[in-house]
């Protein structure tokens, strides 16, 4: 199996799908430059440069999907979905219901997300909780190149709208473009297993199926994206203290693999959520509800983003769900 970067894995899945399915078109700002190889292979008729008009090109993607195309829409960052949220919230996500189930809206939104490179609170948000709250949307958040490829491939065969989160900290291409800019004078805390890995062409990952990345009986840690790698590092260190963590990579937030979470929490009686998204009204609270609805009353903690992501690198590192914060919360749950 060839190795590649996280971002390249998504590119590959899109290229493979475009070669197979002539109805897939790619839309986004600067895509002729950012995705030049796709222009060279598929031409400007299928790789469309968009003006800086998120509301229009997201809305047009919804319409194009209604008309028979399968648009892939690239946002520069998920933060900018705010500009065009109506298309996602009120149109893509509603078509299935409003048409009585006969008309689907197959749009894939590729949304770079997250902080860790000091770009400030308007360019480092995660927002998957907000989006996963919307019925009719599918939301996937890979943490490895293999899952990035597999979930993208699955999404491109799915008949409804999908938001694919691409953590910029895992994506070497974005990190170079937005963070490093050919400098040697900056460093980033990149989890190596998330940034580069084996990818099997053609392999898909099913929606709504979590992956247990580490087994343990004392504490369940649920996470996505960069949070998975932070949780695994924390679990290594906690094992040295005699605490065995089970680390669940949710991979897909809507649909959510409730069963894997519930079965784990039933055994450990402790649930910790490590989430780079905002703490309130999001994934962390949702998982608590999942446990309660299953009749479980685990000890519970959440390590999330508490406030607007700060710009200064040291403040940002402290605000993100880092290994130290996860360990501290785990120790409180297991004391």
């Amino acid at each position: 199996m060839p190795e590649c970067t996280f971002g390249r894995a998504i590119d590959l899945a899109i290229e493979h799908a475009m070669a197979r399915d002539a109805t897939i078109v790619l839309i986004g700002e600067d895509v002729p430059m950012l995705r030049a190889p796709l222009v060279a292979r598929f031409g400007t008729g299928r790789v469309l440069a968009a003006p800086i008009s998120e509301a229009a090109f997201l809305g047009a993607a919804a319409g194009a999907a209604m008309g028979g195309l399968r648009p892939v829409v690239e946002l520069y960052m998920v933060d900018f979905i705010g500009v065009g949220l109506d298309a996602v919230l009120n149109h893509m996500a509603k078509l299935d219901t409003f048409s009585g189930g006969g008309w689907r809206c197959p749009v894939l939104i590729r949304a770079p997300s997250g902080g860790g490179y000091g770009d400030g609170g308007q360019h480092g948000q995660s927002l998957w909780g907000m989006l996963a709250a919307i019925p009719g949307l599918t939301v996937v958040v890979p943490s490895t190149p293999a899952d990035a490829y597999g979930l993208t491939a699955t999404a491109l065969g799915h008949d409804g709208p999908v938001v694919l989160f691409e953590s910029k900290l895992l994506s070497a291409e974005w990190l170079e473009f937005l963070g490093r800019g050919a400098r040697d004078s900056v460093t980033f805390d990149v989890p190596p297993a998330g940034a580069r890995g084996a990818v099997e062409p053609g392999a898909t990952v099913p929606l709504g199926q979590a992956a247990v990345r580490r087994q343990g009986g004392d504490l369940t840690i649920a996470a996505v994206a960069v949070g998975v790698h932070r949780a695994l590092e924390a679990a290594d260190r906690l094992a040295a203290k005699g605490i065995e963590c089970e680390v669940i990579d949710l991979r897909s937030l809507r649909p959510l693999d409730r069963r894997t979470v519930v079965e784990s929490v039933r055994r450990t009686s402790r649930l910790l959520v490590a989430d780079e998204d905002y703490v309130a009204y999001g994934l962390a609270g949702e998982l608590a509800a999942v446990a309660l609805e299953a009749g479980l009353t685990p000890r519970y903690a959440r390590v999330c983003l508490e406030d607007t992501l700060p710009y200064a690198r040291h403040l940002e590192a402290a605000a993100l769900p880092n290994v130290e914060r996860i360990i501290a919360a785990a120790l409180r749950l297991t004391d």
Partner: peptide, 17 residues
């Protein structure tokens, strides 16, 4: 590399490059 792979309309590809 991409330009040598089987793909879309040739004129549109050349135009893009």
């Amino acid at each position: 590399g991409a330009a040598t792979r089987k793909g879309g309309d040739l004129l549109r590809r050349v135009g893009g490059v």
